[in-house]
């Protein structure tokens, strides 16, 4: 592998990794990111309609 190859690989991998880590960190740090899923009970949109026809 040539020096140019090492440089291109390192820059490419570092760039996408940093972008990915920064984006996810920003999402998790932003207020309003709430987790509303409680358990994994089986509930489909049809059941919601049956329960709350309005």
């Amino acid at each position: 592998m040539t020096t140019g190859g090492w440089i291109i690989m390192s820059v490419s991998v570092a760039a996408v990794t940093l972008l990915f880590v920064w984006s996810i960190a920003k999402v998790l740090r932003t207020p309003g990111e709430t987790e509303k899923m409680h358990g994994f009970e089986f509930e489909t949109p049809d059941e919601k309609t049956d329960r709350d026809p309005s």
Binding site: V13, V16, T17, L19, F20, S23, I24, K26, V27
Partner: peptide, 17 residues
């Protein structure tokens, strides 16, 4: 905007990294 960038960056990480 951030959601779009995050999803795209996750894809790029999996692809390039």
């Amino acid at each position: 905007v951030l959601s779009g960038l995050s999803a795209a960056s996750a894809n790029e990480f999996c692809e390039v990294g």
